[in-house]
Computed example of a mutant assay.
Amino acid sequence: MSGNSRIVKGIGLFFLVLGVLAIATAAIMFFGAPAADLDIEDGVQIAQLYAVILAVSGVFQLATGFIGMRAAKHAKLLKPFVFLCAIIVVLNLSQIGITIRAGEGEIWQNLIYAATAFSGVIFASRAMKDQNLS
């Protein structure tokens, strides 16, 4: 396994761990929302809606991580991994733009996530190039 493939595997592991954490957090949020004392109207439904959105995001991250870890050994999975990482980069950069335009909120999490996904694109592309030259 080349150095680029090892980095792809590490980035895949990063996304896999984030996906599991997001799904676990979404489950806690969804089932814990009725017990929370929310002072806004329909607060429980809003919290559960955000939990579902977080769960969908977590499943996407989990799939990206799984494909990334498999792509380190199977060259045919490198293209789908690049595509999924590119989607993550675009979504995080758009979220950064929305946050900046709103004038409130923090963007450092999105910057780290976008940088990691962009690194996944770069190293998976290099691994594809290595596979083609060998």
Rank of each mutant, 00 (worst) to 15 (best):
A22N: 05
K79T: 08
V82R: 08
A72M: 07
L18W: 05
G65E: 04
A35M: 11
L13V: 11
R101P: 02
K76V: 10
L54K: 08
L21E: 14
A55H: 01
G68T: 04
Y50D: 03
G32V: 04
T99Q: 12
S94V: 15
A27P: 00
G58Q: 01
G58F: 03
Q45D: 14
A26D: 00
S57W: 14
D37F: 07
G43Y: 11
A63Y: 07
T64L: 09
S94D: 10
D39A: 15
I107A: 04
L38R: 15
V59F: 15
E104S: 13
M69N: 05
G58Y: 04
A102P: 03
S94L: 15
I88N: 09
M69W: 07
I67A: 09
V56P: 10
L84G: 05
G19R: 02
G65H: 06
V17E: 09
A102L: 14
G10M: 15
I98M: 14
G65I: 06
S94Y: 07
F30E: 01
F15D: 09
A35L: 07
L49N: 12
F31T: 04
F14A: 14
D42T: 12
G32S: 01
A35H: 10
A72P: 03
A47W: 08
G43D: 09
K79A: 12
A26T: 00
V90Y: 05
L54E: 08
I87E: 11
Q48H: 01
F66P: 01
V59W: 12
A72V: 06
G32F: 00
G43P: 13
A22F: 01
G105I: 03
A86R: 02
V44N: 02
L16R: 02
I100S: 00
G68Q: 02
G10E: 10
